[in-house]
């Protein structure tokens, strides 16, 4: 039977309706739009790279080609890595993003499961409430939060960010996971219930293994959001050593009105690499959970 199924699949894969589409048509409808899209997306990275390896002389020279480098140099990157606290900033960002992501996922899994599957009285309103919390802009929320951060005595430590980032990560992940849990057939849980599983066992042995794509995309989203977060990192952290990359490169690499463009761009480029790598590993899971792929 399996052979029949797999050969069936092969027929579909190579066939489809592709034979109806001629090459010129494909160029116009697929490749040209795709090329434009890729160009728009990748151009900032190109520019960052170009500036990061451009000597200062070329950078300020009038009339030089801004999109090209004549004498590439690694000076800016060396300066960034060895003469500033960049490795520290990178480490801080990594630490804060990772811990707050896992913390938020843990809470979001429990919240989403409870709202979606335990269906207690008022679960719908709790779900709405969590979503509303997400709508409060950080530019308002940072004021009360900063008072609390101060009160707990965690100001100017990574803990200040690890504890405040979940205020926007949990609502977001909860909503994403609620949708994902909803797509898992309820019968599976009923079946497990009859098989003798407790609620916690159902969550850990049935629901979570099936929700892995959802967890991954929630995780990536949460990680990216906390990696790029600016306002809280700017307001709760003072010491240069404790800053995160997004804040540090615009505060520490600008002295007075002098912008260290080369190092700044190198910092931005290096800072965006971890997220890009993360995405590239999980892109399949990520796409399938975003598009609500149907699983058997």
């Amino acid at each position: 039977m399996t052979d029949a199924v797999s050969s069936d699949k092969a027929v579909h894969d190579e066939g489809g309706m592709a034979y109806l589409t001629s090459l010129p048509r494909k160029v116009v409808t697929i490749y040209i739009p795709l090329a434009i899209f890729i160009f728009v997306l990748l151009f900032p990275f190109y520019w960052m790279t170009v500036v990061a390896i451009k000597p200062d002389g070329e950078l300020i020279e009038q009339g030089a080609n801004p999109f090209w480098v004549d004498n590439p140099t690694l000076d800016h990157i060396r300066h960034l890595l060895f003469e500033t606290s960049y490795p520290h900033w990178l480490w801080n960002t990594m630490l804060v993003a990772t811990v707050s992501t896992f913390l938020s996922l843990f809470c979001a899994v429990l919240a989403a499961y409870a709202i979606e599957r335990l269906r207690y009285t008022g679960s719908r309103y709790v779900g709405m409430g969590i979503f509303l919390a997400y709508l409060v802009p950080p530019s308002i929320l940072f004021i009360p939060l900063s008072i609390m951060v101060q009160a707990y005595g965690v100001r100017d430590t990574p803990l200040a960010l690890i504890l405040t980032y979940p205020t926007f990560l949990i609502p977001f992940s909860t909503w994403l996971l609620m949708g994902y849990f909803r797509s898992i057939p309820y019968e599976l849980e009923e079946c497990a219930l009859i098989d003798g599983a407790s609620r916690l066992q159902i969550l850990t042995k049935i629901t979570l293994p099936l929700a892995v794509p959802g967890l991954i995309s929630a995780g990536i989203f949460a990680f990216t959001l906390s990696w790029n977060e600016f306002i809280y990192a700017l307001t709760f952290i003072d010491a240069s050593e404790n800053k995160t990359v997004p804040v540090a490169i615009v505060t520490e690499l600008v002295t007075g009105d002098i912008y260290a463009w080369g190092s700044l761009m190198a910092g931005a480029l290096l800072g965006s690499l971890p997220v890009a790598i993360l995405y590239s590993f999980f892109v399949d899971h990520y796409v399938s959970s975003m598009t609500g792929a149907v699983k058997e």
Partner: peptide
């Protein structure tokens, strides 16, 4: 009595096999 203590087994319409 909760389902797991009723000593029953159930076959569902869509089989409800654990896909993983």
């Amino acid at each position: 009595v909760p389902p797991k203590e009723r000593d029953i087994a159930m076959v569902f319409q869509n089989y409800a096999l654990y896909p993983h």
